[in-house]
């Protein structure tokens, strides 16, 4: 039997309740269950997590960095989405 490599999984860890899961790296595992167990050993040896997500890397889709300018351009021209765009008269302190 050929030596087939285990699939690659991306690992996301929630470091404490109230925070988002954050990408920490990847690992190889035969299935999702093993990926979570391995992620526990590889990425949380010092209590870095309270929850783990794993996603098989082939199921992850990413934007193309060479098209980042065009992709994010629409936001560049809309300074009025930021509060600093607006004049606030003197005398108004908290707004």
């Amino acid at each position: 039997m050929a030596n087939r490599e285990w699939p690659l999984w991306e690992v996301f860890i929630r470091s404490k309740q109230g925070l988002n899961h954050k990408h920490v790296g990847s690992l190889r595992a035969a299935d999702a269950e093993m990926a979570i167990e391995n992620a526990r050993d590889v990425y949380t040896r010092r209590s870095e997590g309270v929850s783990i997500w794993v996603v098989e890397s082939k199921n992850l889709f990413a934007s193309d960095p060479s098209e980042a300018d065009a992709l994010f351009e629409p936001a560049d021209s809309k300074v009025y989405r930021h509060p600093t765009f607006y004049d606030v008269p003197d005398g108004i302190e908290h707004m």
Binding site: N3, E5, L8, G25, S26, L27, R28, D41, V42, R45
Partner: peptide, 26 residues
């Protein structure tokens, strides 16, 4: 034991990084 286990972990962080460059871990 904890130290040696860390070295295994460090190897795995690094193989993970090398795979992002398109290299094959095996």
């Amino acid at each position: 034991l904890a130290k040696v286990q860390d070295e295994a972990g460090h190897g795995l962080y690094l193989y993970s990084a090398v795979e992002t460059l398109g290299a094959d871990r095996e």
